[in-house]
Design a protein around this nucleic acid. Structure first.
Lengths: 357, 357
DNA sequence: TTGTAGGCGTTATCAT
DNA sequence: ATGATAACGCCTACAA
């Protein structure tokens, strides 16, 4: 034993020779340089009160000079948590998703956590792989946002035994913890706004069926009309895909109707973008001929022509809330978290009083 | 020794009792269940030919049932690589950045890599922390995109001894590997397009100074004018901030000029969004009164009113290229990588022949 | 074809 | 205040 130690004294190629690619220095390298044991180095670097403050300072300086960075992977092995969370999204290339991510990342970063961001592309097989990967990486928690994932990988997810928070997801009922926007109230406010402007023939341009947010927003739209005594017209509800292309196609359908609507509630701002293009291409004007309302209040909503009336979701805030909820759960709090955030109607210039006559 | 082993025979609380929170099963748990040694389990799960295929199959089934997921953190400790890369961005809530990310993520995912996405918020201290974090997490490589980071954390970065690839970054000269758009050529094409439409008084609405992409795009703008014999007018070059707000303010400046431009080259599409709003608010029309060109071809460029003429960057592709380059470097290839991708002028309806008289 | 024995770089638990 | 020692869960020799 003593012989082994002797073989490692400084000067005898402390990093194990030079034929291999240079390694990052380990805690033992620092210990050797500082002539202390590695636990002492560990303590010094964690500002433990159990070390002499002078030696602690000396060790820190040496570690700094050596460019030492404690390995989070080794630490994770013993502490059994990785200070890492996984975020599953359908696609990151989406203004809503990336705002939510930004909120999550900030909250995570503030507490020393790192975020794995993975796309599922709405493909079940890919989703399975993502969750599997997160399981292997031993993430401490998972956030899923804007996914249509339902029962698909729910069992896998629960088997991981880490807390999961959903943001605006389908079937949150099956999971325990979620952050959701008040879809129905927001959509109702939008429809009410149109009704107050005198509109009676209002369309709903939705997302694909089976998506819970879409169902709720459609419900809000219907609720407002019911309250105003407007009879529901099934042909005024059409389906898009949550993107401009789908919005454009669906609006084309509406404009092909014998009696087109005078106003449209869109599932989201992306859809509204396409709807407005369709309206222009048909030689009509927004809002003079048709009023348009979006949902989300993405960054471009103030810059469309005309600026888009929409229902604001506090996206970054929702991301932060999701992350903070996850912290609560990760620290052992077992209580159910179901946060509902308020949606706010933002009136701009894409809505106007209905044309009389 | 034998006593210790004897103490671990099945039936004697294999997971170490039930008073602690349930642990994820380890490779030893599976070995015990399958009545084999843990290396055999390891081999079976890696489809090693060194195991009897029947026992391998049996082991896999048991592992599956037990919900076993090999710990990537333990594996990383011994293999010395984490199959993880770090991506540093200024902010993720940006259409350019999120498209690039999407390309990176796909390429990474295809090869079993996970991506840490971290925001620097253009704050030097935050940038330092991000890199430090990546160092601790032992990422196998780093990609930095659209950051203004210069010499600030370069030393830290190089000390990590992992390959780094820059995407459209400032000062790529200091680093070895990069994926860049041909800024100057793209911008020159945009300016030429305006010149061909008869414009002589063309403005450049840039980003903040000191940003390399901005300098190159401005150079392309000047080059085209020089070639056309148009004398450079300093007051026609104004500064934005890469976002709509800055574009709007800068366009206000241009319109306050005694003799405003008849066309504007914008640093990017976000800037163009603000410029077009400013033009509208001044009671002018695009392109009848002023032609506008953007840069990037973000998703909304086809949906602005009028649709935006712009210079396309293949953003996802650039992300993929960056990731593939990183793979090359991570596998030991030491050759310098400097990829230049072509920019493509996309003519839509925000540009028109200059008004005669 | 399988099992045994080390070691990866930390933290935690004992001693001293 | 510090040091020795043992995990953590996996992989990779090497031995059988």
């Amino acid at each position: 034993m003593l012989d082994e130690e002797a073989g490692k004294v400084p000067g005898v190629s402390p990093l194990g020779g030079s034929r291999r690619a240079a390694r990052q220095p380990s805690i033992k390298d620092i210990a050797r340089l500082a002539h202390v044991s590695h636990p002492t180095v560990s303590r010094a670097l964690q500002n433990s009160p159990l070390v002499n403050s002078r030696t602690a300072e000396r060790i820190r300086k040496i570690a700094e000079q050596a460019g030492y960075h404690a390995s989070a992977v080794a630490r994770g092995l013993v502490t059994r948590h990785s200070r890492t969370i996984g975020l599953v999204v359908t696609t990151a290339a989406d203004p809503f998703t990336s705002e939510v991510f930004s909120g999550i990342e900030q909250a995570a970063h503030d507490r020393g956590y790192c975020v794995f961001l993975a796309e599922s592309n709405a493909d079940p097989e890919s989703e399975r792989k993502v969750v599997q990967t997160f399981a292997e990486r031993r993430v401490d928690g998972i956030i899923v946002t804007s996914s249509r994932v339902g029962a698909l990988y729910l069992p896998l997810l629960s088997e991981m035994m880490v807390p999961i928070v959903l943001v605006n997801n389908q079937h949150p009922g099956a999971f325990v913890h979620s952050v959701m926007i008040r879809n129905q109230e927001g959509s109702r406010a939008a429809a009410n706004h149109l009704i107050e402007l005198g509109h009676r023939r209002i369309a709903y341009l939705g997302d694909q069926t089976g998506y819970q947010s879409d169902a709720e927003r459609c419900a809000g739209y219907r609720e407002a009309q019911d309250a105003a005594g407007i009879v529901f017209t099934p042909e005024l509800v059409v389906l898009g895909d949550g993107k401009p292309e789908g919005g454009q196609r669906a609006m084309d359908q509406l404009l092909a109707l014998p009696c087109p609507p005078t106003a449209v509630c869109c599932y989201n701002d992306m859809t509204a973008l396409g709807a407005m293009l369709s309206i222009r291409l048909h030689g009509l004007r927004v809002p003079e001929d048709i009023s348009v309302v979006g949902f989300d209040d993405l960054f471009f909503a103030s810059y469309t022509q005309p600026p888009l009336t929409t229902v604001r979701q506090p996206m970054r805030r929702m991301g932060q809330l999701a992350m903070e909820s996850l912290f609560r759960l990760m620290s052992g709090d077992a209580s159910e978290i179901r946060i509902k955030v308020e949606a706010e109607l933002i009136v701009r210039e894409s809505t106007a009083r209905v044309r009389t006559g």
